[in-house]
Design a protein around this nucleic acid. Sequence first.
DNA 1: TTGTAGGCGTTATCAC
DNA 2: GTGATAACGCCTACAA
Lengths: 325, 325
Amino acid sequence: MPTIKDVARLAGVTVTTVSRVLNNRGYISDATRQKVYQAMEELNYQPNEIARSLHRRKSKLIGLIIPTVSHPFFGELAGFIEYYAHLIGYKVLICNSLLDRKKEKEYIEMLKSNRVDGIIMGSHTLEVEEYMNLNYPIVTFDRRISEEIPYISSDNYGGGKLATHLLIQKGCKKIAHISGNLQLQLLANKRSQAFIELSKEHGIESVIVETELNVFDITQYEAMIRNLLEKHPDIDGVFASSDVMAAYFIQIGYFLNRRIPEDIKIVGYDDIKLASLFVPPLTTIRQPIEEMAKCAVELIVRQVNEEPFERENVFPVELIERLTT
Amino acid sequence: MPTIKDVARLAGVTVTTVSRVLNNRGYISDATRQKVYQAMEELNYQPNEIARSLHRRKSKLIGLIIPTVSHPFFGELAGFIEYYAHLIGYKVLICNSLLDRKKEKEYIEMLKSNRVDGIIMGSHTLEVEEYMNLNYPIVTFDRRISEEIPYISSDNYGGGKLATHLLIQKGCKKIAHISGNLQLQLLANKRSQAFIELSKEHGIESVIVETELNVFDITQYEAMIRNLLEKHPDIDGVFASSDVMAAYFIQIGYFLNRRIPEDIKIVGYDDIKLASLFVPPLTTIRQPIEEMAKCAVELIVRQVNEEPFERENVFPVELIERLTT
DNA sequence: TTGTAGGCGTTATCAC
DNA sequence: GTGATAACGCCTACAA
């Protein structure tokens, strides 16, 4: 690959001059500018961003740590994050932690070594303290780490309320909530909290099941749900804390000959693109994924540029009523 | 951030020595080694990978260009690619072209400027020639560019045959194929080719519809399918060239009160994770996504290391018969 | 066993 | 207007 020196030599000038035309800085005669352009053209020169990054101590790189891009919700989130990052000249390094503590740590180290300008954390397997002294531009999804670190979340409590309320209003007598693991202090837990409070308030029987800790194996969903239906065959309403979980539920219901929504009503969370394609189309709580992604990128950039930013970024959710309720 | 100099100063040695213990090269007394380690610890030193990349002229970065990670198939592919890349110390830069020619070009330039070690191309909006003189370690999904560039694909023709054959064997009298755009010379077109040949061979009435060129807007799927069913209400079998398309079909069938599989049988392609969760669970042609991803990473690494590699990497497919046929 | 010096490709600060 | 030169942080001959 040709370097700036090659261009300089070919154009009969020094690297300084080439650099100048490259960055449009200072005065340059049209003549030399043309010569330089020509040389660049001829050599098919492309400035080495690595060298640039080293010099300016900015990589224009954002690290994104999530459980996995292959999960529809995170895939969509990652898609939008990359989209908005690209708009302002940032690149995205993806890291799939698979909810493995060791990998998550490794990735954080790796991203820092690579001097990314900021890290967007959508995976949280570590304890809060471990993130605290990260000392890096960072933004968090669904987790409050400290007073300084900004976070993004949907209105989890509100979403939980909307979902639970809908089930109750539709006449469910015994409702269940299926959720990811609740031990980690994630803001998503507020969905469960709302579920509990509301069912108690209305005097409705309720049950909660959760996945194991730090395991990203969606196959366990099936066992969990079958188990639930076996122990509580009289459940007639379910609030799943993700659309993927809801999909599992719908399917198991299909095999168990439970009609949806006649026998069991179900509402999901996220509103991934495929949710509207489920059969029957899924009633769910919509998170504004695109806006949240955009916000994440902005929060990183603001920190990089040392501009002021909001610490709490809670986005409104919306009940999308389709045919599973 | 502390640099190697800070470490050297604190440890009372020179940067050379620090670099040596860092890279385990040459002889070093245990005493100094310990001092250095201590200093690194104390400063929380992390070597600057940007500087390293600049020096060794290898970035350990792989660029991945796909239509979008938010599409389940590409999300899964990206997940596996990152997984295997990570295993051998490579990082992945994602680029969502959205099947936009301009973006795709931009991304290629960007990746070259960032001196990624190789590019995995899963998006193809440009003409073959434009990729030819890329002069870069590259591997392609589902497209044959030139004699030198390795490509990966599933056995598209075989898959098309399996799918079509199943429909015929199940007694379908008029079958349809819905597909992405067929103008680009993608290997995936062989699915259609097999569909055409087989239906002709068996004397079965058939029709093909495709999406528009260079548009990544899955909302057009719906119009396309509705249109198809309006024009050809007597269709009783469908081969969709992706599971997502199949999902659209299933849903539209649901709304139109066409029973699946009784009235219309449908088979998809890819076997994304959610395919088994559709209602009814989708019969589909499974691509070995994980193996293909692994292969892509290997092909890049082999090129980087100037090791020999296969140019043609066609993976076998498998018919996964579930309940839509 | 450890240190000195030059280079990786750019940009920024001075000069001229 | 243009050119030396010294960084950026790291690695590696070559010396010592």
